[in-house]
């Protein structure tokens, strides 16, 4: 219990591959939550997560601040989810990219909405990936805008706008659902 990220990273870089297993176990569920919500599909999320861990190991020497390994890994995962998200959108039409198309998307059947879990996933899936990413990083992962800007490469004002729009759209989506 107690071994810091920095110590584990240093051990891995010194050749103790096993130490990386402890880092994977430490961050698996935490980062998995973001990937699952971002991608809306558990299998896609696990693939993205696995790939992020492997990529991070491969380029571990470029982790400038081993004590902040988690933040660095997070950035790799966010990027990885973007490419997966693109593929998933093309494959399953999961995401609606055009804001104007929101109102045209049919509501799921009552059976499909039976579970709150499904409803939340459905609602998130109606946001654009950019809005969903900003919303999750801000409200679920609890990041500051400065941190979000570092992770995503977007400007702070743009991120604030995305979060605001995401909230507004989710409220609209749920008002629609209440009328059904």
């Amino acid at each position: 219990m107690g071994t810091s990220d920095g110590e584990l990273v240093r051990r891995v870089l010194a050749g103790d591959t096993g130490a990386y297993a402890a880092l994977v176990a430490r961050y698996r569920d935490r980062l998995g939550r973001y990937a699952v919500h971002m991608l809306g599909d558990r299998q896609d999320a696990e693939e993205a997560l696995q790939d992020a861990f492997v990529r991070a190991h491969r380029s571990l020497a470029r982790c400038d601040d081993p004590e902040r390994f988690g933040a660095w890994l997070y950035g790799i995962l966010v990027n990885r989810c973007r490419t997966t998200g693109g593929r998933a959108a093309r494959r399953a039409r999961l995401f609606v990219r055009d804001d104007a198309a929101l109102s045209g998307v049919p509501l799921p059947s009552p059976a499909e909405r039976a579970e709150w879990d499904d409803t939340v996933r459905w609602a998130l899936g109606r946001l654009t990936p950019e809005y969903r990413e900003a919303f999750l990083l801000k409200h679920v992962e609890d990041l500051e805008y400065e941190e979000m800007a570092q992770l995503t490469g977007a400007g702070i004002s743009a991120l604030k706008m995305r979060v605001k729009r995401a909230r507004e759209q989710l409220q609209i989506i749920f008002r629609e659902a209440e009328r059904v």
Binding site: R68, Y74, E141, D142
Partner: peptide, 9 residues
Amino acid sequence: ARDARPGRP
């Protein structure tokens, strides 16, 4: 407890 939520990158 939220303020102390761990794992924040």
